[in-house]
């Protein structure tokens, strides 16, 4: 991400900034493990969503889990660990990140 650095005259007064700008910052390249979402097995319990530290569980407009936001996902694997689905019908599985 090559974002032009602001000069001091371009800064908001008083060391302030609009909230939420970190959304522009990608942390997806931190991953070595990658969660894969299997929609057909998802029971929409939202445990993955509740425990994801990176707000990286994607929901659709009906608030159903639809996938992982790889822009932010750091691959910690909490979503997989907390997913209560059975071994043979996992909604989230981890695999090695392919570069």
């Amino acid at each position: 991400m090559a974002i032009k650095k602001m000069g001091w005259k371009e800064l908001m007064p008083g060391d302030a900034i609009s909230g939420g700008t970190a959304a522009e910052f990608e942390t997806g390249d931190w991953r070595s493990e990658k969660p894969i979402f299997h929609k057909e097995n998802c029971i929409n319990c939202y445990f993955c969503w509740a425990y994801c530290p990176d707000s990286a569980i994607l929901l659709d407009e009906n608030k159903k889990v639809v996938g992982i936001d790889y822009k932010y996902c750091k691959g910690c694997g909490i979503c997989d660990r907390e997913c209560p689905t059975k071994k043979e019908k996992r909604a989230i599985t981890m695999e090695t990140e392919r570069k």
Partner: peptide
């Protein structure tokens, strides 16, 4: 919503 009192690194 504003964020005030950010962490600045060497660049800001």
């Amino acid at each position: 919503p504003l964020t005030m009192g950010c962490l600045d690194l060497q660049d800001y």
